[in-house]
């Protein structure tokens, strides 16, 4: 067994996944189910956001219950800039990431002085403050939110209103973010972060500035969530305060736990499973959340390290 510290990607697996995701919308068009392209896009966006939260929960041991705030500020940044006439994605999306990073700096600066349950509560409190702040701002549409007049302009010929174009842009953003996270967790900062997760006191005794290491990860996760928010605004064409509601933060946490905290693909798998369950069960009953609860319970009981962890365990057992 290789060390738990280094996360190696299996090239064959990654290639297969990439090809599958590249041809998926074409296949859906071939069987005349274009609606599912939108669902797949939504999954990709949430896979990106949940992966950023997984950096905090899975690799940093920071149970942040306020991740929706960073998504929300990213989405509102894009919507607000568009109202001000700035439609270029090359300008608006980096600003959305910056907004997420700055908000994460502010929230993390204070929250990371606490740990355990206090950290969970204080991140929740900050996110709820952001939620109520957005609701009370008439400039940003208050309760009703903002409707985007158009979509961010990326390149001539790419219209983000077209489902297919959006899908591939979302795929590119997700793939780039995942690749970055993969590099990050195997690099100096990522290894230090995992050390802090497992034994913060010892890391400090070894000479690591643990608070600043956690803050750096928090800011990076905030920036990626901001990018996810920018994509989400373009997907739905509407931003509303519900993006920042605590139930959104909760759903993101469920994705991470479901998929596997501390697994590279944990956030992505969790996002896909949760959104697909939601899509399927919603057709049968309005109590679909009950079904999600049952699945979550089963995961926690039978695969405590999430679906990704469970699958890895199965593979190892087969090899043994």
């Amino acid at each position: 067994m290789t060390s738990a510290l280094h996360v190696s990607a299996r090239p064959g697996f990654a290639l297969a996944g990439a090809i599958l995701l590249l041809v998926l919308p074409l296949g859906l068009l071939a069987v005349d189910q274009p609606f599912y392209i939108v669902l797949a896009s939504r999954i990709l966006v949430f896979a990106l956001i949940a992966s950023s939260l997984n950096l905090l929960i899975g690799y940093g041991g920071m149970i942040s219950f306020g991740h929706a705030a960073f998504v929300g500020i990213g989405a509102y940044t894009v919507a607000g800039l568009m109202q001000a006439g700035i439609v270029s994605a090359w300008l608006a999306w980096p600003i959305a990431m910056l907004a997420g990073a700055v908000l994460a700096l502010g929230i993390g600066w204070i929250s990371l002085r606490t740990s355990g349950v206090y950290f969970i509560m204080i991140t929740l409190a900050f996110a709820q403050m952001a939620y109520y702040a957005i609701i009370s701002l008439k400039l940003l549409g208050g309760d009703d939110g903002l409707s985007l007049g158009g979509r961010s302009a990326l390149l001539p010929g790419i219209d983000l209103k077209a489902d297919l174009s959006f899908y591939y842009v979302a795929l590119a953003c997700f793939a780039a973010s995942l690749a970055f996270l993969h590099r990050l967790i195997n690099a100096e900062l990522g290894r230090a972060l995992q050390g802090v997760r497992d034994n913060e006191t010892r890391m400090e005794a070894l000479g690591f500035p643990t608070y600043r290491i956690k803050l750096a990860a928090f800011i990076i996760a905030g920036a990626l969530a901001g990018l996810g928010g920018a994509l989400l605004a373009n997907l739905t064409g509407l931003v509303s305060p519900s993006l920042l509601h605590w139930t959104q933060s909760g759903a993101l946490m469920i994705m991470v736990i479901l998929g596997g905290a501390g697994r590279l693909l944990g956030g992505a798998i969790g996002a896909a499973v949760l959104l697909i369950i939601e899509e399927v069960l919603r057709d049968y009953t309005i109590h679909w959340q009950l079904g999600v609860g049952v699945v979550l319970l089963a995961i926690v009981l039978f695969a405590p390290s999430g679906l990704a962890g469970g699958l890895a365990g199965l593979r190892q057992r087969r090899q043994a």
């Binding site: 690099a187 100096e188 900062l189 290894r191 230090a192």
Partner: peptide
């Protein structure tokens, strides 16, 4: 031990190059 050696070399902020 590599983690401790990272502390000695004061290498904490790299985000790209794999330590392994």
């Amino acid at each position: 031990l590599a983690l401790a050696a990272q502390a000695r070399a004061r290498r904490r902020w790299g985000c790209w190059a794999p330590v392994a």
